[in-house]
Simulated scan of single mutants.
Amino acid sequence: MIARAVEEDPTVSGQALSSLPRSTTLRERALVALRTAITTGLYRPGDHLGEVEIAEHLSVSRGTVREALRHLQQEGLVTAGARGMLRVSQLTPTETRELFQVREALEGLAIAQIIASPRRKDAAEALRKALKKLQDAFESGADLATRVEADLGFHLLLCELSGNSMLLKTWRQLEGPMRVVIMSAAGERRDVAMAATAHEPIADAIARGDAAAAQEILHAHMALAIEQMGIEREDARDTA
């Protein structure tokens, strides 16, 4: 599948490698190139990742590719299937819903801790700056990868501002699967969920110190994301 990805955008893997400092190891360089190909949608959920093919196109050894793929498995971007064949992770509708539920729990805790903090107003201002970046990404016609980065950047900042290192670490473990889900969702519906206007009420509630409202808004935001990204319930789909 890497051949197809390179045909669609032959500069991606090369840019990912060339942008790294020369001191970076080959494994790290291959890891960045593969992660970029997956999180920008050049590899799609379910795509097979062959060591030989990847090694050839990245001009590295199979062992280097194997180490990079093993790391991506730990990030949740790659899954081993039948006979150990590696593929880009493909979440079921149920797993995707669970992913958003866990995100909501983590970000809800982050909101509660921010509001309880004496730095609440500073945090709200920082979140508004992140919203401006998200809005600019949409208004400037930035590519999908940039818009996704700005969207997740807001949620990442929310977790960082909580001051809870374990919360942040747990959220970051979900980041890879989140990117795959978002990148593979339908375009216009996905943009509705990622828009700055969908996030602004969260920052406003934090600024007011209204914890109950902030939690309700976050819940509605996650429900909107699930709906707009076209995630169906498996049981509903089976009986349709």
Rank of each mutant, 00 (worst) to 15 (best):
I2N: 02
I2S: 00
R4S: 06
E7L: 14
E8Y: 12
D9P: 04
D9I: 04
T11G: 07
Q15T: 13
A16S: 15
S18N: 11
S18E: 12
S18I: 10
R22V: 13
R22P: 10
S23D: 06
L26T: 07
R27V: 15
R27M: 13
A30P: 08
V32P: 01
I38A: 00
T39G: 00
T40F: 05
T40R: 14
L42R: 06
D47C: 05
A55M: 11
A55Y: 13
L58R: 09
L58M: 05
V60Y: 10
V60L: 05
R62Q: 13
T64K: 07
E67Y: 09
E67V: 11
Q74V: 13
G76Y: 00
L77Q: 05
T79A: 15
L86T: 02
R87V: 12
R87Q: 14
S89W: 05
S89L: 10
S89G: 08
Q90V: 04
Q90K: 15
E95K: 04
A105T: 09
A105N: 11
A105M: 10
L106W: 03
E107P: 05
G108R: 00
A110M: 11
A110S: 14
A110F: 09
Q113Y: 04
A116H: 14
R119F: 08
D122S: 14
A124N: 02
E125M: 11
R128M: 03
L131Q: 07
L134E: 12
A137H: 10
A137Q: 04
E139S: 09
E139K: 15
A142E: 09
L144Y: 06
L144H: 07
T146R: 14
D151R: 14
D151P: 05
D151K: 04
G153A: 01
L157H: 00
L157I: 04
L157S: 04
L161E: 06
G163P: 10
N164P: 09
N164T: 08
L167C: 10
L167E: 05
K169A: 12
W171T: 06
L174Y: 03
E175P: 07
M178R: 11
R179M: 10
R179Q: 13
I182E: 00
S184D: 14
G187F: 05
E188I: 02
R189N: 09
R190G: 03
V192S: 09
M194C: 08
T197I: 13
A198D: 08
E200F: 00
P201L: 07
P201T: 09
A203W: 11
D204T: 07
A207N: 11
A212E: 07
A213H: 01
A213G: 05
A214L: 03
Q215S: 12
Q215K: 11
E216T: 15
I217E: 06
I217S: 03
L218I: 02
H219Q: 15
H221T: 07
M222F: 09
M222A: 04
A223F: 12
L224N: 09
A225R: 15
I226Q: 03
I231C: 02
E232C: 10
E232A: 13
R233A: 08
E234A: 15
D235E: 08
R237N: 04
T239I: 14
